[in-house]
Amino acid sequence: MTLMKLTASTIAIAAVSATAAMARDNIQIAGSSTVLPYATIVAEAFGENFDFPTPVVEGGGSGAGRKKLCEGVGENTIDIANSSSRIKQSDIDLCKTNGVEEIMEVRIGYDGIVFASDIGGPDFAFTPADWYNALAAEVVKDGQLVPNTAKTWADVNANFPAQDILAFIPGTKHGTREVFDVKVLEAGCKASGAEEALVAAKGEEDGKKACLALRTDGLSVDIDGDYTETLARIAANKNAIGVFGLSFYQNNTDKLKVATMDGVVPSTESIASGEYPVSRPLFFYVKKAHLGVIPGLKEYIEFFVSDDMAGPEGPLAAYGLVSDPELAKTQEAVAAETPMGALN
């Protein structure tokens, strides 16, 4: 008898799942783990103050989020993709093939990338060239291109203490790594004169690529996890220097000491003014076909870029987001539901 009952309930469940075409009433968001904390802060406040349910926010990485966004139109696809780097042409093409014609690009602000070491360690004042000379596979020494043999920071720059080089940098799957490559390694490669030497030795394209080649003797460590992992590694190895997001550093100022870059201390102000060199814009991308279909989607976007949230006095800035000076333009574009044009 019990078996019969169990079978009956199984069939009942199966019947329920078959009629699953229910209207979704919550917003679904996925993407960058850098944007994730900001998105959860907005989602939380949105759920509190509006009559719509709190949006569901997933992490997973910028690229994965954009891919999910481009999977198609419909209630079982996400509405918004968070991204810490700009959308790529390949994503837009994927969107087109899957019927996602119009996407809105919303820039929410800027994020700084900082270099920090254990709170008890010495102070550092870096330039991109220092980082290039410390981590690159090949550096210029006395006018010659030689493999990198620097063991301590003093070998890199005589002004630094003789602390062993050990750097925890974001792994290649992170959007942060892209910024590190461009704003630190490439800039350092140029500034130290290595780019010239590399281009002369290997040709235009390969030489520029070689700028991004890192030493493989274990002094530069890729971290594929989050900043929490980098922090734990620094706690275990006090000599190490790690790469963090500004907001993460601001939440852990009692454990980390931040280094200056080109003489500028990273802060929301110095990043907003453009003085601090290592920063990047943060975006989210909205599937326009879902506006007016998913309840609260438009309200959520408008709320996100409102002065109460993304403005310089808002909670996002308090958490470490560098407020966009052109926020008013973004607000206008959102209100007019302007889709993004072609990538330039």
Partner: peptide, 9 residues
């Protein structure tokens, strides 16, 4: 399947 997410509701 999207369950590793921030869900408040």
């Amino acid at each position: 399947i999207g369950m590793v997410a921030f869900v408040r509701e």
